[in-house]
């Protein structure tokens, strides 16, 4: 990785055209994120937090402006290239865990790397990250429905980490958990950050934001 910024937003706008009039979700946002940062994105509902996170995660492309990931412009890439970046360089943690119900814990974790890596190596790596987030081998074969919320979120974090991503994006990671479990999950993310991962957390919760070293406030699609 170059020594430039990990993420660079230049005048990025996102406009959703609706029959009732265009909705501006992001309004000329510029920001820089350096490798190893721990950032909280805060703001009221509808302020554009999720849109910003989707852009960072290469799930969405801007209507105007440019986004660079490690110096490469991603704002005009094809869907396949964006998917490849998500698979190889980005980890997602969602509020609702979003594990695939059909797959066991370990299979959920290995899914992203199985698309590119051999079965044995994928399984070994999945076991490794599961152990790192505190899920023991007896739980590996459990389906998501058989796990508690906290365990599911740990598995989801393991899945986000399995491809050794440059960027860990978390959308309300503690939103569906009680405060005690939420703390455990935040400690886990903080530990990953201390190991060098860039972590970006979207949240309403000031306690969650307190883990971050920098907070981005969004209001009506603008950084304030």
């Amino acid at each position: 990785m170059s020594d430039g910024p990990l993420l660079l937003f230049e005048e990025v706008s996102k406009i959703y055209p609706l029959p009732a009039g265009d909705v501006v979700a992001l309004d000329r946002v510029s920001l820089t994120i350096e490798p190893g940062e721990f950032i909280a994105v805060m703001g009221p509902s509808g302020s554009g937090k999720s849109t910003l996170l989707n852009m960072m995660g290469c799930l969405d492309v801007p209507t105007a402006g440019k986004i660079y990931l490690s110096g490469r412009e991603v704002s005009s890439m094809s869907d396949d290239d964006l998917t490849g970046i998500r698979r190889d360089r980005i980890g997602f943690v969602f509020q609702r865990f979003n594990l695939i119900p059909l797959l066991s814990a370990v299979e959920n974790v290995e899914f992203p790397i199985l698309l590119t890596t051999g079965r044995a190596e994928s399984r070994r790596r999945a076991g490794e990250v599961l152990a790192a987030v505190g899920i023991g081998a007896p739980l590996f074969s459990h389906k998501p429905g058989e796990l508690s919320g906290g365990e599911q979120q740990r598995v989801a974090i393991a899945r986000a980490l399995v491809n050794d991503p440059d960027l860990l994006l978390c959308d309300e990671p503690t939103g569906n958990l009680d405060s005690k479990t939420g703390t455990v999950i935040m400690e886990l993310l903080a530990a990953e950050n201390r190991r060098g991962k860039t972590v970006i957390v979207v949240t309403h919760d000031p306690d969650v934001a307190a883990y971050a070293r920098r907070t981005i406030q969004l209001v009506d699609g603008r950084i304030v």
């Binding site: 998917t83 998500r86 698979r87 594990l99 119900p101 698309l115 899945r159």
Partner: peptide, 16 residues
């Protein structure tokens, strides 16, 4: 639908 969305967001391509 949701499962497909999950798979797509964690790196499954359209053709996959």
């Amino acid at each position: 639908t949701r499962e497909i969305g999950i798979m797509r967001s964690i790196g499954a391509r359209k053709r996959e």
